[in-house]
Write a protein that binds this DNA or RNA. Structure first.
Lengths: 381, 381
DNA sequence: ACAGTTTCCCGTAAATGC
DNA sequence: TGCATTTACGGGAAACTG
């Protein structure tokens, strides 16, 4: 049966951090006949705990009731916005310590319930509604895991409420998953993932296959198991890259300068017949949240030699923007004049043509001092 | 009259930040005859508020009573340590909003009181003692101001408690003050301030004088008024330098490589007859927490030309340690080969002799990538 | 409008619990 | 002991408040 009112926010916060304020809003979708008293709404966290399941338990630290009001910016329906709500964990319930459940914290799904009563022509009517599933975290380091849960849930079910979803999470086809991943990038950056990039991700996750689209990817493979030989999962690796783009690479990502998701094999295939100085930008597969460039080096033997720089991470990119690194990078080889080995962005666009608009002069005039900056260099011996 | 017990901690925390845990310890200095019950101590914040003075008011958020215990590590006397104490401001007292006092928050002096009662042979005895003055802040950005108060108080009074001290703070002679400042540096770094450095500070604070030692410095001049033409006070400037040393310059400061406090005039006098490549390290007077180097440039006209680089601040020094900057710094002049202009540390010590032990190789081997680093450069046109 | 002050909260480090 | 999770809090920025 259709709810007569709807929470219009949680959809949004979806991930709530304990001790950090969040906001939620409920709107009454039906017009009530004039009521002569104020309609008070109460918010309850996890009103319907899944029976038998061990869950962390939380409560709303701040005030939980508020009176509905006519919404100005709309067609005069009633709504209420709770601000400055804050969650805290109940460590003990009836003096007994709460145990951890069988799921990891970012797989626990919670919810906010809203309730109100009103009386119309002598009949008491109870209203109740409930938010979409919420993940509760205690530290931003858990955002990656929480976001994975939200994605998986939204991708694979239309149920508004299924707190047990992660007790046995369904698999996703690569067709579904790749679409969602691309959508993540286009939402948070402005550019999604193209066919080649998705293909590399598919191979990384599922190995070489004739066609990936019908392959099924398990929840565990996606974000719980580590990539073989690496201390992080596939999604963790990908989300750190997304964060790196958001904070340090946005314009050049959106401008399509970053091939990014390229296997070592494809990289070699792309570059091996290119002229020296051709380079491409690739996200590191060994380091979390790192980007590197690989270029073709002039070689005496005639065979193409590919060289990659140590990946730049967020801490290094906050010292110098990536476009400037590309512009100024120098390799110092014994006895030779330092030279910038980056000349043509793959397949063959002169570097400055691709990056000029992203160079950052940042020459702070600080009279009487002379300004200074960093030049990124590598030494070849 | 002598207190029969003493708080042994606050002396230490001296500055307490609201919402951040602190620890305090009280020790009973007299041996009590055996008592057959436990001696309970209660902690009270600002028990004796200065009458008539408007003060911010705080309370201890956490538990405030604890039982004294025989101290293991000592001669068996009673002591109690309060841990995880936390302060919170009372914004309203009896429903009335507390106004701000006439002093700035870091000039308000507070105190922790401790009280206990015991009964000996039918006589009730009350014990009470009180900490040294405390400054309460709400953000680390106020540490500089708080520390100034502590220094001024300790320098100019021996009273264990005088909450009104900053209602009319006494002046300090430069003799006293300079000693205290030098002591700050030696306590927090390992090297104090020498005569030349103190002389520069004296001139900065009081202008040119035959002898500074008898000059009186007002509290306001020290840390409330801005330096003419600058948006910060003398002490704020100095404390930012102290922080810079603590975090980024400790070994080279302790190794006496940093002249540091040098006026532009003295700098010119020192360097003007030195050979090209002679340089010295100086803290910026225009930027908070910055260090620069000034060197003698080879000049066609024969006259010495002094050049200073834009000051390095903590954010830039966390990208590259200062010793490496000195080692690798290059100036690029039109059409010339980039050159490191820093050759002899004033008065004439070959650079590597002074700095070699502080160079940091930090070559992270990251096969199959080639490692990279920053080279600090300036461009002269 | 503004300055002094506090609150907010990310992100790293340390502590805690299982 | 190691891993998962929470707590602690510095530091930059925003919000608050007379």
């Amino acid at each position: 049966e259709k709810q007569p009112w709807m929470p219009t926010h949680p959809q949004k916060p979806l991930i709530i951090k304990t001790g950090v304020q969040f906001t939620t809003k409920v709107r009454l979708l039906v017009k009530l006949p004039e009521v002569d008293y104020q309609l008070k709404v109460k918010t309850i966290f996890d009103k319907h705990l899944p029976p038998g399941r061990v869950h962390r338990q939380f409560f709303i630290l701040t005030s939980t009731t508020k009176v509905m009001d006519v919404e100005e910016s709309s067609n005069g329906c009633l709504s209420v916005e709770f601000r400055h709500l804050q969650l805290k964990e109940k460590k003990y319930v009836n003096g007994i310590k709460v145990n951890e459940g069988p799921l990891s914290v970012t797989e626990e799904l919670h919810s906010l319930s809203f309730e109100a009563q009103f009386n119309i022509q002598g009949i008491n009517i109870d209203l109740e509604t409930c938010s979409f599933p919420l993940v509760v975290i205690s530290n931003v380091s858990q955002l990656t895991g929480g976001w994975a849960s939200i994605m998986w849930y939204n991708m694979l079910t239309d149920e508004p409420r299924n707190p047990d979803f992660f007790a046995s999470p369904p698999r996703a086809s690569w067709g579904q998953l790749s679409e969602v991943l691309s959508w993540q990038f286009s939402t948070f950056t402005g550019r999604g993932l193209n066919r080649e990039q998705l293909c590399m991700l598919g191979e990384k996750l599922m190995g070489q296959q004739a066609s990936h689209n019908e392959c099924q990817v398990s929840w565990s493979k996606f974000c719980k198991e580590n990539i073989p030989g690496k201390p992080f999962s596939f999604w963790m690796w990908l989300d750190f890259i997304l964060e790196l783009i958001k904070k340090h690479l946005l314009p050049i990502w959106n401008d399509n300068c970053i091939m990014g998701f390229v296997s070592k094999e494809t990289e070699r295939a792309c570059l091996k017949d290119k002229e020296p100085g051709t380079f491409l930008l690739r996200f590191s597969e060994s380091h979390l949240g790192g980007i590197t460039f690989t270029w073709v080096k002039q070689s005496d033997s005639g065979e193409a030699k590919l060289i990659s720089v140590e990946p730049y991470t967020k801490s290094r990119l906050s010292a110098l923007p990536f476009a400037n690194i590309i512009r100024d990078y120098k390799v110092i080889a014994d006895g030779e004049v330092p030279e910038n080995p980056l000349k043509f962005l793959y397949p063959g666009i002169p570097k400055d043509e691709s990056f000029r608009r992203h160079y950052n002069s940042q020459q702070s005039k600080v009279f009487p001092y002379i300004s200074s900056t960093w030049i990124p260099i590598s030494t070849l011996q």
